[in-house]
Design a protein around this nucleic acid. Structure first.
Lengths: 209, 209
DNA sequence: TGTACATCAGTGAACGCGCGTTCACTGATGTAC
DNA sequence: TGTACATCAGTGAACGCGCGTTCACTGATGTAC
């Protein structure tokens, strides 16, 4: 008959996290029950508690996994864009275009951002988890602020600009775009917002003409 | 001693909705218990069920209340801006400035947007509620798209612009700005995003100079 | 003005179900000697 | 190469609590005649 495959704990753990993420993005953390997760994974409740000492540990592991994947994805994309382009402005513009294309290449409507979901339920979590979330958002600001600084040095902007706000704007548009995309069931919203941001960056820094 | 004030059902109902909104924005709908609401309002559980036949009815009433307030606020603000200004572009720019000022006048960190909160838990709600939410978002798009059309007719933009995306951009920035503001505990984020949007609109339509 | 009835805005007690958590136990695999 | 022990990745049964919902009832106010 069917041979039972060897049990590898880390795989099971990953499957739990994977399934939990989809469920949390659809219903929120509180209404995602351990019961439904183990039913989907095919273990018992005690099996779950072998991997996570309580539900809070699950939340933390989910967020860490999400932030890690997120960072890896963006690091990869913008470093590829930089390789293609020496100039900081053009590198950024290429990176944004790649970003927009990746967003629209998603099969269906993007499932959403776990950080935003956690943010709208933050009273459920302890300080550690909330701080992880804050740090994740700050990392985006820092990442884009550095790029904008490099661009500004080479291309002095025509008018005064709030560079911190401009760095935050990309996260803002992504978070907002995911919400609108979901509410209106329209995958094109997010990539189009990113392209609009790209236009804005270009119009601020690019030499007129 | 204390005279018991006359019982007015609609007042009690409003207080339930008010308290529920704050709780849902902090913890999500599923973890906001009827028990805690009635404790805060000072009635019994059966009193709650006199006003709402079940928890789903509470959700619907909350969303309706939120959308109504939202609409009234924006209608008021932009119509005041229009009165001050005949020109569609300047009227819009003034309205955006007023909007940004209102956002930064909020006492503490903005509590968030109920529509976004519902959106990240939409599997909890029935189709009617989800459709209300969608319609609310579409109303914003329509509202701003009309303004942009009027502006475009008088001020032909230099480059091609995606006017639907530009109309959606304001909702996107508000939704995203609320999330960032909350995660980073910084009330200035949202108004600064609105001002950046204002700069963008001006740079697209305003005659160069 | 008095009375009968209806409606409003609740009370109080009970319900069953699902949830997160605990605890004692287990069978397969890995490691030391 | 064999054996003893440790660790890994779970099982199975039980728990108590909180939750949403129901039902019969009530006391104050409003309305018709």
């Amino acid at each position: 008959m069917l041979e039972t495959p060897p049990r590898r704990g880390s795989e099971t753990r990953d499957r739990i996290l994977e399934i939990a993420e989809a469920a949390v993005l659809a219903k929120g953390f509180a209404s995602t029950s351990i019961e439904e997760l183990i039913a989907a994974v095919g273990i018992t409740k005690s099996g779950f508690f072998y991997h996570f000492k309580d539900k809070g540990e699950l939340a933390k592991a989910m967020l860490l996994r999400y932030l890690k994947r997120d960072k890896a994805l963006l690091d990869d994309m913008f470093s590829r864009a930089d390789e293609l382009n020496e100039d900081p402005l053009h590198g950024f513009l290429v990176g944004l275009k790649m970003f927009a294309e990746m967003m629209s290449a998603l099969p269906e409507v993007h499932p959403g951002c776990l950080a935003a979901s956690f943010c709208y339920q933050d009273q459920l979590f302890n300080r550690e988890i909330r701080e992880l979330n804050t740090a994740g958002m700050l990392a985006w600001r820092t990442r884009f602020r550095e790029r904008l600084d490099r661009i500004e040095r080479r291309y002095p902007p025509r008018q005064d600009v709030d560079l911190d706000a401009m760095a935050d704007m990309i996260s803002t548009l992504v978070e907002g775009g995911l919400i609108l995309g979901r509410a209106l069931n329209d995958v094109t919203i997010l990539p189009r917002q990113v392209l609009l941001y790209r236009d804005f960056v270009r119009s601020v820094f690019a030499p007129s003409g």
